[in-house]
């Protein structure tokens, strides 16, 4: 035994982070909501077809202020995973999210979201009920929602299913969370013709919080000195502080009764995404 201190950050590969992000004991949306919010009321159902327990949301009090919260939620055992479809939302989930955003807008309540999904459900019935349209309508609603929105990637950010509740004024990301356009396994299956090459794919896809901060897609990387599943309460407390900080900043220049202030906030949100991309000119 030596007492040499190992700094894990430098030694973790992208795939290590993917595994940490997916750890079943890593705190999920409900853990954050139950710890950080008071007087929580879940609001269920999309008012069209059903209620999706893979994407949940409702009301709560965060630091003395009423907010609308939403997030992806998987299960910790088989029964829960079946109920929550492994955290992969179906169209009803996205339609519920859209409904809750409209609800937040109606009552001028800020929104906080927790992103943690391997992606939208790829099933026959989801296609029948318009999975693509449901995601698109949720995105269209979110980008124009006239209240402050702070999003945090707490685990795995998988493609369009994750993006659906990630358009906001601030984007936070835990150090061991990942966010990718496709799962490393899917990318490897397509480009390597071998899902077993996921580690190579993860490395070159640049899925870590540090990569995405460097690209300007993440406003703050929230350090995880100890991985979240080993230090649940500390991690949740830190995330709460950072959400509070960013929400306060956005709220400071927002006024629900001042149209110009709302438009200025929406314009900033537009510009935030407007500049994302990498190209050259000839």
């Amino acid at each position: 035994m030596t007492d040499e201190v190992i700094t894990p950050e430098s030694q973790l590969t992208a795939m290590d982070r993917v595994r940490l992000a997916r750890d079943p004991n890593r705190p999920g949306t409900l853990d954050y909501v139950n710890e950080l919010l008071e007087r929580v009321v879940e609001l269920r159902g999309d008012r069209s077809f059903g209620d999706d327990q893979a994407l949940i949301g409702g009301l709560g009090t965060f630091r003395g202020r009423a907010v609308v919260w939403m997030g992806h939620q998987g299960g910790t055992n088989t029964k829960e995973n079946l109920e929550r479809n492994f955290g992969m939302p179906r169209p009803e989930g996205f339609r519920k999210a859209k409904r809750l955003m409209q609800h937040a807008e109606k009552f001028a309540l800020p929104i906080i979201t927790f992103v943690d999904t391997s992606g939208a459900d790829p099933g026959i019935s989801s296609e029948e009920r318009g999975q693509a349209t449901a995601i698109a309508e949720c995105l269209l609603q979110m980008i124009g929602t006239r209240v402050p929105i702070v999003c945090t990637v707490i685990g795995e950010g998988g493609s369009g299913g994750a993006l659906s509740i990630s358009l906001g004024d601030r984007m936070l990301m835990l150090e061991n969370a990942v966010y990718a356009v496709a799962s490393p396994e899917a990318c490897a299956a397509i480009l390597w013709k071998d899902a077993g090459k996921a580690a190579e794919a993860a490395a070159t896809m640049r899925v870590t919080a540090a990569d995405l901060q460097r690209f300007g897609m993440v406003d703050e990387l929230i350090a995880e000195p100890i991985p979240a599943h080993e230090a649940t309460r500390d991690t949740i407390r830190t995330v709460g502080e950072r959400i509070e900080h960013h929400l306060a900043e956005v709220i400071a220049s927002w006024d629900k009764d001042d149209n110009a202030a709302i438009e200025a906030m929406l314009d900033k949100r537009y510009q935030k995404y407007r500049v994302m991309g990498a190209w050259t000119t000839v």
Binding site: L139, L140, L163, S166, A180, M205, V207, R269, Y273
Partner: peptide, 17 residues
């Protein structure tokens, strides 16, 4: 466009905006 990673995903946000 997997080769552009999250830049690709963010085009969904940018275009819908």
């Amino acid at each position: 466009r997997m080769h552009e990673g999250l830049f690709s995903l963010m085009q969904m946000a940018k275009t819908i905006a």
